[in-house]
């Protein structure tokens, strides 16, 4: 097995490669404005450092957010296209879960909030319980102002960039800040092991089977975005 994990939902443009027993290579570039520039070179470099060819990859997993839309799409379309080109299964995982999983891998237990930067003075957040053998998400990912999260939630240890941006509302900052490709890959391999395999021959893996589908978690409608209609028409 050689599982390629990709996430562009946070400031980190991150890639991880997992051979089924451990993370064999990982890369991350911190650049919130240039996801499409760094992602493909990062995948190329990660494969090269593991001595692997694109054709050696057996599984693709992408973080489906929530995250700022433009960057988020870069990771999802890259994962979908890479997998399509090589005829591989491609699966999605909620990106916030990868942050909670990394905290869990680091030894953290108990309650945890993950709050990432949603821009426009808001955070994407979900609550977790980190048990002995896994991290479980206990609320659906949502977007809101940090100060509008329930008071009992805001006092909990909080991973992601939310606490660094809104220290007053989220005073208890803990690691990690961003998604890491290695943690996402590790989470994906565990989910693959824990759950029944998807029906054979399926190239495009639907939600279920421990995964979350391949649709981006936007959590905001485009209408809500104050993007004025472009001055460009559709005449080509």
């Amino acid at each position: 097995m050689l599982l390629l994990a990709i996430d562009t939902s946070t400031t980190a443009i991150t890639v991880g490669l997992h051979d089924g027993s451990s993370v064999v290579a990982e890369a991350a570039t911190l650049d919130a404005r240039a996801h499409a520039e760094h992602l493909a070179p990062n995948i190329r470099d990660v494969l090269a450092s593991a001595g692997a060819e694109p054709g050696d990859v057996t599984d693709v997993v992408v973080g489906i957010g929530p995250g700022p839309f433009t960057g988020l799409r870069v990771g999802i379309v890259t994962g979908r296209t890479f997998a399509f080109a090589l005829g591989l299964p491609v699966r999605g995982l909620t990106s916030l879960d990868a942050i909670a999983h990394e905290a869990w891998l680091g030894g953290r237990r108990g309650e945890l909030v993950v709050a990432t930067d949603a821009r426009r003075k808001e955070v994407y957040a979900a609550a977790y319980v980190l048990g002995d053998d896994r991290a479980d998400r206990v609320t659906e990912p949502a977007v809101s102002r940090a100060g509008d999260l329930p008071a009992e939630t805001r006092g909990l240890p909080t991973a992601g960039r939310g606490p660094t941006l809104y220290a007053e509302a989220l005073p208890h900052a803990v690691a990690p800040l961003d998604v890491s490709g290695g943690a996402l890959a590790d989470l994906a391999v565990r989910r693959l092991r824990e759950t029944a395999p998807a029906p054979g021959g399926l190239q495009w893996v639907d939600p279920g089977h421990g995964f979350d589908g391949l649709e981006p978690l936007y959590l905001r409608r485009p209408d809500a975005a104050p993007a004025p209609p472009s001055t460009k028409s559709t005449l080509g």
């Binding site: 996801h35 992602l39 493909a40 694109p54 870069v74 379309v77 890259t78 979908r80």
Partner: peptide, 21 residues
């Protein structure tokens, strides 16, 4: 073109080029 729209095509093209060599 539109920045966000261009990114989807370019990211997809890069993934194709990388996967296919």
């Amino acid at each position: 073109g539109l920045a966000g729209a261009l990114l989807v095509g370019v990211a997809s093209a890069k993934a194709l080029a990388l996967a296919l060599g």
